[in-house]
Design a protein around this nucleic acid. Structure first.
Lengths: 158, 158
DNA sequence: TGAGTCAGTTCAAAAAACAAACTTGAGGCG
DNA sequence: CGCCTCAAGTTTGTTTTTTGAACTGACTCA
């Protein structure tokens, strides 16, 4: 399988990675989530090279994750905003952030970013739960089952 | 910022991406979650080139996400298994999968993979919730706040 | 007129990925 | 013994991507 054929895969993980699975895309989206919406702003925050930033933004727009909105004319300038499809990536962003906080931070290091839930006004951690029983999901209690495949394959640690 | 300096960033998203943020790593981990633990097995499932697979597995072991376990000697052969740190990536995997299911699948297409929760035995969707009020998190109700930074920046769509 | 801003594009060099063949240390077959 | 097979890589040469630096174009401001 080549990288550019990934969007044709039947697997949803592969299809998602065909959009956000490269070295820079999620960092660009992090900037957008932080409301850094303009080319120059993202370029100087991220220190990404300009050609890569331009190419990635073009792809994110064509994939329907971002949209270009003009904020002035003469000359026309635009900024990049999340579409609903892009906003739906927030659980992915929170999951990445939480893994980094819990697994990559030397003990005692304070977190650089935290999350606040506007409806309850608390600083919180994101917890993945089951849509049916509403309990938090422990890795060992989750199975990934392939449709049509014979038994079932566990999403199980060790 | 160059890619290899990413693990030095203070941001947890950047640190996480320094481990799993390239074109192949999450696909390799998908295979591991599906219990395809051996080199040949992963190589033929993924059609990844052998040098890239070898390099990624080496890095995942050195990052503490996988560990090598011998399953025979003479000649010594090993398989790759998740550590606890690796198993902790399951919310990331579920979030990626769920985004693909809901945003990338043409309407009416059945899902290739689904999730089952062993404790309640139901097929479920993963739902990200607030650790404080336990409500599901809508993208617009979540803010990312930078420590020390002046106001607060919203993790807000449009 | 000259300097500055923003959103890119162009171009050459360096790094990474690709494809195919090769290696290493076994066991099995005739 | 010589030859084939297997698993888990490594080597080699080619192609693609990324990097870094400079350049462009449409405008504003002094």
């Amino acid at each position: 399988m080549r990288w550019n054929e990934l969007d044709q895969e039947p697997c949803s993980i592969a299809r998602t990675l065909s959009v956000i699975g490269d070295r820079w895309t999620m960092l660009i989206l992090r900037e957008i989530f932080f409301r850094h919406r303009r080319f120059e702003e993202m370029q100087s925050e991220l220190n990404i090279t300009r050609p890569v930033l331009a190419q990635r933004l073009r792809k994110l727009v064509s994939d329907g994750v971002l949209r270009k909105v003009a904020y002035q004319s003469q000359p026309t300038r635009h900024e990049y905003r999340l579409t609903d499809k892009g906003a739906a990536l927030s659980p992915v962003m929170m999951a990445l952030m939480h893994w980094g906080d819990t697994q990559m931070l030397p003990a005692g290091t304070p977190r650089a970013v935290h999350l606040r839930h506007c409806t309850c006004n608390a600083q919180f951690d994101p917890v993945m739960t089951c849509s049916v029983c509403h309990e938090p999901l422990a890795p060992k209690d989750v199975r990934m089952e392939r449709r049509g495949s014979v038994p079932s394959l566990e999403l199980n640690p060790l």
